[in-house]
Nucleic acid binder design. Sequence first.
DNA 1: TGTACATCAGTGAACGCGCGTTCACTGATGTAC
DNA 2: TGTACATCAGTGAACGCGCGTTCACTGATGTAC
Lengths: 233, 233
Amino acid sequence: MSRRATYHHGDLRRTLLDASLALAEESGVAALSLREVARKAGVSHNAPYHHFPDKGALLAAIADEGFEALAREMTVASAAVPDGPRAPLARLEACGLAYVRYALKSRAHFRVMFRPELAQDACVTPRCSMTRPFELLVESIVACQRAGQLPDGDPMPLVLTCWSAVHGLASLWLDGPLSLDPKGFGKSPEKLAATVVGTLSSLATAAMVLPAPRARQGRDDGARRRTTRSTRE
Amino acid sequence: MSRRATYHHGDLRRTLLDASLALAEESGVAALSLREVARKAGVSHNAPYHHFPDKGALLAAIADEGFEALAREMTVASAAVPDGPRAPLARLEACGLAYVRYALKSRAHFRVMFRPELAQDACVTPRCSMTRPFELLVESIVACQRAGQLPDGDPMPLVLTCWSAVHGLASLWLDGPLSLDPKGFGKSPEKLAATVVGTLSSLATAAMVLPAPRARQGRDDGARRRTTRSTRE
DNA sequence: TGTACATCAGTGAACGCGCGTTCACTGATGTAC
DNA sequence: TGTACATCAGTGAACGCGCGTTCACTGATGTAC
Protein backbone atom coordinates (compact mmCIF):
# COMPACT_ATOMS: atom_id res chain seq x y z
CA MET A 1 0.00 0.00 0.00
CA SER A 2 1.62 3.26 -1.11
CA ARG A 3 2.12 6.11 1.27
CA ARG A 4 -0.40 8.11 -0.76
CA ALA A 5 -3.05 5.52 -0.11
CA THR A 6 -2.93 6.06 3.62
CA TYR A 7 -2.66 9.81 3.52
CA HIS A 8 -3.67 11.82 6.57
CA HIS A 9 -6.16 9.69 8.42
CA GLY A 10 -4.20 6.51 8.07
CA ASP A 11 -6.55 4.58 5.86
CA LEU A 12 -9.94 6.20 5.91
CA ARG A 13 -11.17 4.16 2.98
CA ARG A 14 -10.61 0.93 4.87
CA THR A 15 -12.06 2.43 8.06
CA LEU A 16 -15.21 3.48 6.20
CA LEU A 17 -15.70 0.02 4.73
CA ASP A 18 -15.27 -1.56 8.15
CA ALA A 19 -17.64 0.92 9.76
CA SER A 20 -20.22 0.19 7.08
CA LEU A 21 -19.99 -3.52 7.68
CA ALA A 22 -20.25 -3.11 11.42
CA LEU A 23 -23.33 -0.92 11.05
CA ALA A 24 -24.96 -3.22 8.54
CA GLU A 25 -24.31 -6.09 10.92
CA GLU A 26 -25.95 -4.22 13.78
CA SER A 27 -28.94 -2.59 12.18
CA GLY A 28 -29.35 -4.10 8.75
CA VAL A 29 -28.18 -3.00 5.34
CA ALA A 30 -31.31 -0.96 4.73
CA ALA A 31 -30.57 1.28 7.72
CA LEU A 32 -27.07 2.03 6.51
CA SER A 33 -26.49 5.73 5.82
CA LEU A 34 -23.40 7.58 4.73
CA ARG A 35 -23.68 10.00 7.64
CA GLU A 36 -23.90 7.20 10.16
CA VAL A 37 -20.91 5.51 8.59
CA ALA A 38 -18.89 8.71 8.84
CA ARG A 39 -19.98 9.15 12.45
CA LYS A 40 -18.87 5.63 13.27
CA ALA A 41 -15.55 6.23 11.54
CA GLY A 42 -15.08 9.37 13.68
CA VAL A 43 -14.95 11.70 10.75
CA SER A 44 -17.09 14.51 9.36
CA HIS A 45 -20.10 13.42 7.35
CA ASN A 46 -18.65 14.32 4.02
CA ALA A 47 -15.15 13.05 4.39
CA PRO A 48 -16.34 9.82 2.69
CA TYR A 49 -16.80 11.77 -0.54
CA HIS A 50 -13.03 11.90 -0.91
CA HIS A 51 -13.00 8.12 -1.16
CA PHE A 52 -16.29 7.20 -2.80
CA PRO A 53 -18.21 9.28 -5.34
CA ASP A 54 -21.47 8.40 -3.64
CA LYS A 55 -23.22 5.96 -1.38
CA GLY A 56 -23.74 3.39 -4.11
CA ALA A 57 -20.01 3.28 -4.81
CA LEU A 58 -19.28 2.48 -1.19
CA LEU A 59 -21.76 -0.39 -1.28
CA ALA A 60 -20.38 -1.62 -4.57
CA ALA A 61 -16.90 -1.68 -3.06
CA ILE A 62 -18.26 -3.79 -0.19
CA ALA A 63 -19.88 -6.19 -2.64
CA ASP A 64 -16.66 -6.56 -4.62
CA GLU A 65 -14.72 -7.28 -1.49
CA GLY A 66 -17.33 -9.83 -0.52
CA PHE A 67 -17.18 -11.76 -3.77
CA GLU A 68 -13.41 -11.90 -3.56
CA ALA A 69 -13.50 -13.16 0.01
CA LEU A 70 -16.11 -15.76 -0.94
CA ALA A 71 -13.94 -17.09 -3.75
CA ARG A 72 -10.97 -17.18 -1.38
CA GLU A 73 -12.85 -19.19 1.24
CA MET A 74 -14.07 -21.65 -1.36
CA THR A 75 -10.60 -22.08 -2.77
CA VAL A 76 -9.03 -22.63 0.64
CA ALA A 77 -11.72 -25.11 1.70
CA SER A 78 -11.39 -27.05 -1.53
CA ALA A 79 -7.59 -27.13 -1.39
CA ALA A 80 -7.70 -28.46 2.17
CA VAL A 81 -9.14 -31.77 0.96
CA PRO A 82 -6.30 -34.26 0.42
CA ASP A 83 -5.96 -36.04 -2.91
CA GLY A 84 -7.57 -39.41 -3.33
CA PRO A 85 -10.22 -41.24 -5.31
CA ARG A 86 -13.07 -39.51 -3.44
CA ALA A 87 -11.46 -36.06 -3.47
CA PRO A 88 -13.56 -34.42 -6.22
CA LEU A 89 -16.89 -34.91 -4.44
CA ALA A 90 -15.37 -34.04 -1.08
CA ARG A 91 -14.04 -30.82 -2.62
CA LEU A 92 -17.46 -29.98 -4.01
CA GLU A 93 -18.94 -30.52 -0.55
CA ALA A 94 -16.24 -28.33 0.95
CA CYS A 95 -17.09 -25.54 -1.52
CA GLY A 96 -20.76 -25.74 -0.60
CA LEU A 97 -20.05 -25.65 3.10
CA ALA A 98 -17.66 -22.75 2.60
CA TYR A 99 -20.37 -20.81 0.73
CA VAL A 100 -22.83 -21.16 3.61
CA ARG A 101 -20.16 -20.56 6.22
CA TYR A 102 -19.13 -17.37 4.48
CA ALA A 103 -22.72 -16.12 4.31
CA LEU A 104 -23.22 -16.74 8.02
CA LYS A 105 -19.91 -15.27 9.10
CA SER A 106 -20.11 -12.21 6.85
CA ARG A 107 -23.83 -11.61 6.75
CA ALA A 108 -23.46 -7.92 6.01
CA HIS A 109 -21.20 -8.62 3.07
CA PHE A 110 -23.49 -11.36 1.83
CA ARG A 111 -26.57 -9.15 2.03
CA VAL A 112 -24.96 -6.33 0.09
CA MET A 113 -23.65 -8.78 -2.51
CA PHE A 114 -27.17 -10.01 -3.19
CA ARG A 115 -29.12 -6.77 -2.89
CA PRO A 116 -28.50 -5.39 -6.35
CA GLU A 117 -30.75 -2.38 -5.87
CA LEU A 118 -28.38 -0.97 -3.25
CA ALA A 119 -25.26 -0.63 -5.36
CA GLN A 120 -26.99 -0.54 -8.73
CA ASP A 121 -26.01 2.90 -9.97
CA ALA A 122 -22.35 2.59 -9.15
CA CYS A 123 -21.77 -0.91 -10.42
CA VAL A 124 -21.68 -0.75 -14.18
CA THR A 125 -21.43 -4.50 -14.62
CA PRO A 126 -23.28 -5.43 -11.52
CA ARG A 127 -22.67 -8.71 -9.75
CA CYS A 128 -20.01 -9.53 -12.30
CA SER A 129 -17.79 -10.35 -9.35
CA MET A 130 -19.82 -13.52 -8.81
CA THR A 131 -17.87 -14.83 -11.77
CA ARG A 132 -14.98 -16.26 -9.78
CA PRO A 133 -17.02 -18.19 -7.15
CA PHE A 134 -19.21 -19.44 -9.97
CA GLU A 135 -16.22 -20.72 -11.92
CA LEU A 136 -14.97 -22.55 -8.86
CA LEU A 137 -18.31 -24.30 -8.54
CA VAL A 138 -18.35 -25.30 -12.20
CA GLU A 139 -14.80 -26.63 -12.00
CA SER A 140 -15.61 -28.67 -8.90
CA ILE A 141 -18.61 -30.24 -10.55
CA VAL A 142 -16.82 -31.01 -13.81
CA ALA A 143 -14.07 -32.67 -11.75
CA CYS A 144 -16.72 -34.87 -10.10
CA GLN A 145 -18.13 -35.80 -13.49
CA ARG A 146 -14.69 -36.74 -14.78
CA ALA A 147 -14.14 -38.89 -11.70
CA GLY A 148 -17.48 -40.63 -12.22
CA GLN A 149 -18.94 -39.20 -9.03
CA LEU A 150 -21.67 -37.17 -10.71
CA PRO A 151 -23.70 -37.95 -13.86
CA ASP A 152 -22.06 -37.05 -17.16
CA GLY A 153 -23.41 -34.46 -19.57
CA ASP A 154 -24.08 -30.73 -19.35
CA PRO A 155 -22.86 -29.70 -15.89
CA MET A 156 -25.18 -26.70 -15.73
CA PRO A 157 -28.21 -28.46 -14.21
CA LEU A 158 -26.00 -29.72 -11.40
CA VAL A 159 -24.31 -26.34 -11.00
CA LEU A 160 -27.65 -24.63 -10.76
CA THR A 161 -29.01 -27.14 -8.28
CA CYS A 162 -25.99 -26.98 -5.98
CA TRP A 163 -25.79 -23.22 -6.09
CA SER A 164 -29.51 -22.89 -5.39
CA ALA A 165 -29.35 -25.27 -2.45
CA VAL A 166 -26.51 -23.57 -0.60
CA HIS A 167 -27.70 -20.09 -1.47
CA GLY A 168 -31.22 -20.98 -0.38
CA LEU A 169 -30.08 -22.39 2.92
CA ALA A 170 -28.02 -19.32 3.67
CA SER A 171 -30.91 -17.03 2.72
CA LEU A 172 -33.44 -18.93 4.78
CA TRP A 173 -31.19 -18.71 7.78
CA LEU A 174 -30.29 -15.05 7.38
CA ASP A 175 -33.85 -14.04 6.55
CA GLY A 176 -35.35 -15.59 9.61
CA PRO A 177 -37.52 -18.57 8.78
CA LEU A 178 -34.84 -21.05 9.81
CA SER A 179 -33.08 -19.13 12.56
CA LEU A 180 -36.37 -18.36 14.33
CA ASP A 181 -36.87 -22.09 14.18
CA PRO A 182 -40.60 -22.59 14.43
CA LYS A 183 -40.00 -25.75 12.42
CA GLY A 184 -38.18 -27.76 15.00
CA PHE A 185 -34.95 -28.17 13.09
CA GLY A 186 -33.31 -26.99 16.27
CA LYS A 187 -29.78 -27.03 14.91
CA SER A 188 -26.95 -24.67 14.36
CA PRO A 189 -26.73 -23.26 10.84
CA GLU A 190 -23.47 -25.12 10.34
CA LYS A 191 -25.24 -28.40 11.05
CA LEU A 192 -28.07 -27.49 8.72
CA ALA A 193 -25.51 -26.75 6.00
CA ALA A 194 -23.87 -30.13 6.60
CA THR A 195 -27.31 -31.74 6.35
CA VAL A 196 -28.14 -30.13 3.01
CA VAL A 197 -24.71 -30.77 1.48
CA GLY A 198 -24.69 -34.31 2.85
CA THR A 199 -28.17 -35.07 1.53
CA LEU A 200 -27.30 -33.90 -1.96
CA SER A 201 -24.00 -35.73 -1.87
CA SER A 202 -25.49 -39.02 -0.69
CA LEU A 203 -28.28 -38.89 -3.27
CA ALA A 204 -25.68 -38.37 -5.96
CA THR A 205 -23.46 -41.12 -4.60
CA ALA A 206 -26.36 -43.56 -4.48
CA ALA A 207 -27.41 -42.58 -7.99
CA MET A 208 -23.89 -43.17 -9.31
CA VAL A 209 -23.55 -46.69 -8.00
CA LEU A 210 -25.35 -47.83 -11.12
CA PRO A 211 -23.34 -46.99 -14.25
CA ALA A 212 -25.72 -44.37 -15.70
CA PRO A 213 -29.40 -43.47 -15.66
CA ARG A 214 -29.86 -44.81 -19.20
CA ALA A 215 -28.87 -48.28 -18.07
CA ARG A 216 -31.94 -48.48 -15.91
CA GLN A 217 -34.51 -47.80 -18.59
CA GLY A 218 -35.72 -51.37 -18.87
CA ARG A 219 -35.86 -51.74 -15.14
CA ASP A 220 -37.99 -48.79 -14.25
CA ASP A 221 -39.65 -47.19 -17.20
CA GLY A 222 -41.75 -44.80 -15.14
CA ALA A 223 -38.75 -43.32 -13.47
CA ARG A 224 -36.95 -43.04 -16.77
CA ARG A 225 -39.77 -41.07 -18.34
CA ARG A 226 -40.09 -38.67 -15.48
CA THR A 227 -36.37 -38.08 -15.24
CA THR A 228 -36.12 -37.24 -18.87
CA ARG A 229 -39.08 -34.92 -18.89
CA SER A 230 -38.00 -32.97 -15.87
CA THR A 231 -34.46 -32.29 -16.89
CA ARG A 232 -35.20 -31.49 -20.51
CA GLU A 233 -38.16 -29.20 -19.97
CA MET B 1 -67.41 -8.85 3.47
CA SER B 2 -69.65 -6.78 5.74
CA ARG B 3 -70.93 -3.39 4.75
CA ARG B 4 -68.82 -1.89 7.52
CA ALA B 5 -65.68 -3.30 5.98
CA THR B 6 -66.13 -1.32 2.79
CA TYR B 7 -67.25 1.88 4.44
CA HIS B 8 -66.88 5.17 2.57
CA HIS B 9 -64.08 4.63 0.13
CA GLY B 10 -65.22 1.23 -0.99
CA ASP B 11 -62.41 -0.84 0.34
CA LEU B 12 -59.47 1.35 1.13
CA ARG B 13 -57.67 -1.37 3.05
CA ARG B 14 -57.60 -3.55 -0.05
CA THR B 15 -56.67 -0.60 -2.25
CA LEU B 16 -53.75 0.26 0.02
CA LEU B 17 -52.43 -3.29 -0.04
CA ASP B 18 -52.65 -3.37 -3.84
CA ALA B 19 -50.98 0.01 -4.16
CA SER B 20 -48.17 -1.16 -1.88
CA LEU B 21 -47.60 -4.25 -3.99
CA ALA B 22 -47.62 -2.26 -7.21
CA LEU B 23 -45.10 0.21 -5.81
CA ALA B 24 -42.86 -2.49 -4.41
CA GLU B 25 -42.97 -4.17 -7.80
CA GLU B 26 -41.94 -0.95 -9.53
CA SER B 27 -39.32 0.49 -7.25
CA GLY B 28 -38.42 -2.19 -4.74
CA VAL B 29 -39.62 -2.93 -1.25
CA ALA B 30 -37.00 -0.69 0.31
CA ALA B 31 -38.37 2.36 -1.50
CA LEU B 32 -41.89 1.76 -0.26
CA SER B 33 -43.23 4.61 1.88
CA LEU B 34 -46.62 5.08 3.48
CA ARG B 35 -47.04 8.48 1.84
CA GLU B 36 -46.30 7.11 -1.59
CA VAL B 37 -48.77 4.30 -1.03
CA ALA B 38 -51.48 6.78 -0.02
CA ARG B 39 -50.67 8.91 -3.06
CA LYS B 40 -50.99 5.91 -5.33
CA ALA B 41 -54.29 4.98 -3.68
CA GLY B 42 -55.55 8.51 -4.37
CA VAL B 43 -56.05 9.34 -0.75
CA SER B 44 -54.53 11.72 1.78
CA HIS B 45 -51.28 10.61 3.31
CA ASN B 46 -52.72 9.71 6.65
CA ALA B 47 -55.86 7.94 5.61
CA PRO B 48 -53.91 4.66 5.89
CA TYR B 49 -53.73 5.15 9.65
CA HIS B 50 -57.42 4.27 9.83
CA HIS B 51 -56.60 0.82 8.51
CA PHE B 52 -53.11 0.06 9.79
CA PRO B 53 -51.59 1.23 13.07
CA ASP B 54 -48.31 1.89 11.32
CA LYS B 55 -46.14 1.07 8.35
CA GLY B 56 -44.94 -2.21 9.80
CA ALA B 57 -48.51 -3.44 10.18
CA LEU B 58 -49.20 -2.81 6.51
CA LEU B 59 -46.14 -4.80 5.52
CA ALA B 60 -47.05 -7.57 7.95
CA ALA B 61 -50.49 -7.79 6.34
CA ILE B 62 -48.83 -8.14 2.94
CA ALA B 63 -46.59 -10.91 4.24
CA ASP B 64 -49.54 -12.80 5.73
CA GLU B 65 -51.44 -12.54 2.48
CA GLY B 66 -48.37 -13.80 0.66
CA PHE B 67 -47.92 -16.90 2.78
CA GLU B 68 -51.57 -17.78 2.35
CA ALA B 69 -51.36 -17.39 -1.40
CA LEU B 70 -48.20 -19.48 -1.51
CA ALA B 71 -49.88 -22.31 0.38
CA ARG B 72 -52.87 -22.04 -1.95
CA GLU B 73 -50.72 -22.31 -5.08
CA MET B 74 -48.83 -25.28 -3.70
CA THR B 75 -52.05 -27.03 -2.77
CA VAL B 76 -53.63 -26.43 -6.16
CA ALA B 77 -50.52 -27.56 -8.04
CA SER B 78 -50.24 -30.69 -5.95
CA ALA B 79 -53.92 -31.56 -6.29
CA ALA B 80 -53.72 -31.23 -10.06
CA VAL B 81 -51.49 -34.30 -10.29
CA PRO B 82 -53.69 -37.36 -10.97
CA ASP B 83 -53.47 -40.41 -8.72
CA GLY B 84 -51.12 -43.20 -9.68
CA PRO B 85 -48.00 -45.03 -8.50
CA ARG B 86 -45.72 -42.08 -9.39
CA ALA B 87 -48.06 -39.44 -7.97
CA PRO B 88 -46.23 -38.66 -4.70
CA LEU B 89 -42.97 -37.62 -6.35
CA ALA B 90 -44.84 -35.77 -9.10
CA ARG B 91 -46.76 -33.86 -6.40
CA LEU B 92 -43.54 -32.96 -4.63
CA GLU B 93 -42.16 -31.67 -7.92
CA ALA B 94 -45.36 -29.71 -8.49
CA CYS B 95 -45.02 -28.09 -5.06
CA GLY B 96 -41.46 -27.07 -5.78
CA LEU B 97 -42.34 -25.59 -9.13
CA ALA B 98 -45.30 -23.78 -7.57
CA TYR B 99 -43.00 -22.27 -4.95
CA VAL B 100 -40.68 -20.80 -7.56
CA ARG B 101 -43.54 -19.77 -9.82
CA TYR B 102 -45.17 -17.92 -6.96
CA ALA B 103 -41.95 -16.11 -6.09
CA LEU B 104 -41.50 -14.98 -9.69
CA LYS B 105 -45.11 -13.96 -10.21
CA SER B 106 -45.49 -12.18 -6.87
CA ARG B 107 -42.02 -10.88 -6.36
CA ALA B 108 -43.15 -8.01 -4.16
CA HIS B 109 -45.05 -10.38 -1.90
CA PHE B 110 -42.13 -12.77 -1.82
CA ARG B 111 -39.66 -10.07 -0.91
CA VAL B 112 -41.77 -8.76 1.95
CA MET B 113 -42.34 -12.30 3.22
CA PHE B 114 -38.62 -12.88 3.50
CA ARG B 115 -37.43 -9.47 4.69
CA PRO B 116 -38.19 -9.84 8.36
CA GLU B 117 -36.72 -6.49 9.32
CA LEU B 118 -39.47 -4.68 7.40
CA ALA B 119 -42.48 -5.96 9.31
CA GLN B 120 -40.63 -6.83 12.48
CA ASP B 121 -42.32 -4.58 15.00
CA ALA B 122 -45.85 -5.35 13.93
CA CYS B 123 -45.53 -9.08 13.60
CA VAL B 124 -45.45 -10.52 17.10
CA THR B 125 -44.85 -14.06 15.91
CA PRO B 126 -42.99 -13.18 12.77
CA ARG B 127 -42.92 -15.52 9.81
CA CYS B 128 -45.26 -17.87 11.62
CA SER B 129 -47.36 -17.87 8.47
CA MET B 130 -44.69 -19.96 6.76
CA THR B 131 -46.14 -22.81 8.80
CA ARG B 132 -48.72 -23.89 6.23
CA PRO B 133 -46.45 -24.01 3.15
CA PHE B 134 -43.89 -25.80 5.28
CA GLU B 135 -46.42 -28.42 6.38
CA LEU B 136 -47.39 -29.03 2.76
CA LEU B 137 -43.76 -29.68 1.90
CA VAL B 138 -43.30 -32.09 4.79
CA GLU B 139 -46.49 -33.97 3.88
CA SER B 140 -45.39 -34.28 0.25
CA ILE B 141 -42.03 -35.68 1.24
CA VAL B 142 -43.44 -38.13 3.77
CA ALA B 143 -45.84 -39.34 1.09
CA CYS B 144 -42.86 -39.98 -1.21
CA GLN B 145 -41.10 -41.90 1.54
CA ARG B 146 -44.20 -44.06 2.14
CA ALA B 147 -44.38 -44.77 -1.58
CA GLY B 148 -40.73 -45.77 -1.68
CA GLN B 149 -39.79 -42.84 -3.89
CA LEU B 150 -37.50 -41.18 -1.36
CA PRO B 151 -35.20 -42.71 1.25
CA ASP B 152 -36.81 -43.68 4.56
CA GLY B 153 -35.96 -42.09 7.88
CA ASP B 154 -36.17 -38.59 9.29
CA PRO B 155 -37.76 -36.49 6.52
CA MET B 156 -36.18 -33.27 7.74
CA PRO B 157 -32.90 -33.50 5.79
CA LEU B 158 -34.92 -33.92 2.60
CA VAL B 159 -37.34 -31.16 3.57
CA LEU B 160 -34.48 -28.79 4.25
CA THR B 161 -32.72 -29.66 1.01
CA CYS B 162 -35.81 -29.23 -1.17
CA TRP B 163 -36.85 -26.01 0.51
CA SER B 164 -33.34 -24.60 0.21
CA ALA B 165 -33.11 -25.49 -3.47
CA VAL B 166 -36.35 -23.85 -4.58
CA HIS B 167 -35.92 -20.89 -2.27
CA GLY B 168 -32.37 -20.43 -3.46
CA LEU B 169 -33.31 -20.54 -7.10
CA ALA B 170 -36.05 -17.98 -6.58
CA SER B 171 -33.70 -15.73 -4.62
CA LEU B 172 -30.90 -15.97 -7.15
CA TRP B 173 -33.30 -15.01 -9.90
CA LEU B 174 -34.98 -12.17 -8.04
CA ASP B 175 -31.69 -10.83 -6.67
CA GLY B 176 -30.00 -10.58 -10.00
CA PRO B 177 -27.19 -13.05 -10.43
CA LEU B 178 -29.32 -15.40 -12.52
CA SER B 179 -31.59 -12.95 -14.30
CA LEU B 180 -28.66 -10.81 -15.41
CA ASP B 181 -27.30 -14.04 -16.82
CA PRO B 182 -23.58 -13.52 -17.08
CA LYS B 183 -23.36 -17.29 -16.63
CA GLY B 184 -24.82 -18.38 -19.87
CA PHE B 185 -27.78 -20.26 -18.46
CA GLY B 186 -29.82 -18.24 -20.93
CA LYS B 187 -33.15 -19.65 -19.93
CA SER B 188 -36.44 -18.42 -18.59
CA PRO B 189 -36.77 -18.74 -14.82
CA GLU B 190 -39.52 -21.33 -15.28
CA LYS B 191 -37.09 -23.50 -17.21
CA LEU B 192 -34.41 -23.05 -14.60
CA ALA B 193 -36.94 -24.11 -11.97
CA ALA B 194 -37.79 -27.21 -13.98
CA THR B 195 -34.08 -27.95 -14.26
CA VAL B 196 -33.47 -27.76 -10.53
CA VAL B 197 -36.59 -29.71 -9.58
CA GLY B 198 -35.89 -32.26 -12.30
CA THR B 199 -32.26 -32.70 -11.26
CA LEU B 200 -33.19 -33.34 -7.65
CA SER B 201 -35.98 -35.64 -8.67
CA SER B 202 -33.88 -37.70 -11.04
CA LEU B 203 -31.05 -38.04 -8.53
CA ALA B 204 -33.57 -39.31 -6.00
CA THR B 205 -35.16 -41.65 -8.49
CA ALA B 206 -31.81 -43.09 -9.49
CA ALA B 207 -30.83 -43.48 -5.85
CA MET B 208 -34.06 -45.34 -5.07
CA VAL B 209 -33.70 -47.95 -7.77
CA LEU B 210 -31.58 -49.93 -5.34
CA PRO B 211 -33.58 -50.98 -2.27
CA ALA B 212 -31.82 -48.76 0.31
CA PRO B 213 -28.43 -47.13 0.85
CA ARG B 214 -27.53 -49.72 3.53
CA ALA B 215 -27.70 -52.50 0.95
CA ARG B 216 -24.75 -51.01 -0.90
CA GLN B 217 -22.29 -50.96 1.93
CA GLY B 218 -20.31 -53.98 0.77
CA ARG B 219 -20.25 -52.69 -2.74
CA ASP B 220 -18.85 -49.23 -2.22
CA ASP B 221 -17.48 -48.65 1.18
CA GLY B 222 -16.06 -45.23 0.43
CA ALA B 223 -19.44 -43.91 -0.60
CA ARG B 224 -21.05 -45.42 2.42
CA ARG B 225 -18.67 -43.71 4.77
CA ARG B 226 -19.04 -40.33 3.19
CA THR B 227 -22.81 -40.55 3.09
CA THR B 228 -23.04 -41.39 6.73
CA ARG B 229 -20.69 -38.71 7.89
CA SER B 230 -22.29 -35.93 5.93
CA THR B 231 -25.87 -36.55 6.94
CA ARG B 232 -25.13 -37.23 10.58
CA GLU B 233 -22.78 -34.36 11.23
C1' DT C 1 18.49 23.12 1.97
C1' DG C 2 14.78 26.54 1.49
C1' DT C 3 11.10 28.41 -0.53
C1' DA C 4 6.78 28.76 -3.31
C1' DC C 5 3.26 26.47 -4.91
C1' DA C 6 0.01 22.52 -5.90
C1' DT C 7 -2.53 18.95 -4.27
C1' DC C 8 -4.92 16.42 -1.15
C1' DA C 9 -7.95 14.99 2.85
C1' DG C 10 -10.32 16.68 5.85
C1' DT C 11 -14.14 20.37 8.23
C1' DG C 12 -18.57 22.84 9.08
C1' DA C 13 -22.56 25.22 7.43
C1' DA C 14 -26.27 24.87 4.54
C1' DC C 15 -29.61 23.11 0.87
C1' DG C 16 -33.85 20.78 -0.17
C1' DC C 17 -36.29 16.54 0.37
C1' DG C 18 -39.40 12.95 1.75
C1' DC C 19 -40.38 10.52 5.53
C1' DG C 20 -43.52 8.73 9.68
C1' DT C 21 -46.49 10.45 12.76
C1' DT C 22 -49.64 13.72 15.40
C1' DC C 23 -53.35 16.85 15.67
C1' DA C 24 -57.63 19.16 15.16
C1' DC C 25 -60.99 19.17 11.83
C1' DT C 26 -65.12 17.75 8.65
C1' DG C 27 -68.62 15.56 6.61
C1' DA C 28 -70.77 11.09 5.63
C1' DT C 29 -72.92 7.12 7.65
C1' DG C 30 -75.26 4.55 11.21
C1' DT C 31 -78.43 4.25 15.30
C1' DA C 32 -81.51 5.09 19.48
C1' DC C 33 -85.71 6.72 20.57
C1' DT D 1 -90.79 8.81 10.20
C1' DG D 2 -87.90 12.41 12.13
C1' DT D 3 -84.61 14.01 14.95
C1' DA D 4 -80.35 14.06 17.87
C1' DC D 5 -76.37 12.11 18.57
C1' DA D 6 -72.29 8.88 18.06
C1' DT D 7 -69.12 6.90 15.27
C1' DC D 8 -66.35 6.43 11.52
C1' DA D 9 -63.25 7.47 7.44
C1' DG D 10 -61.45 10.71 5.51
C1' DT D 11 -58.66 15.77 5.09
C1' DG D 12 -54.94 19.30 5.54
C1' DA D 13 -51.49 21.60 8.20
C1' DA D 14 -47.68 20.94 10.88
C1' DC D 15 -43.89 18.61 13.70
C1' DG D 16 -39.13 17.06 13.91
C1' DC D 17 -35.85 14.08 11.79
C1' DG D 18 -32.10 12.18 9.20
C1' DC D 19 -30.79 11.81 4.81
C1' DG D 20 -27.56 12.66 0.45
C1' DT D 21 -25.23 16.10 -1.51
C1' DT D 22 -23.00 20.76 -2.45
C1' DC D 23 -20.09 24.47 -1.23
C1' DA D 24 -16.40 27.26 0.35
C1' DC D 25 -12.94 26.65 3.53
C1' DT D 26 -8.42 25.04 6.04
C1' DG D 27 -4.41 23.03 7.13
C1' DA D 28 -1.32 19.12 6.29
C1' DT D 29 1.51 16.85 2.91
C1' DG D 30 4.14 16.54 -1.32
C1' DT D 31 7.09 18.59 -5.04
C1' DA D 32 9.71 21.64 -8.43
C1' DC D 33 13.42 24.42 -8.59
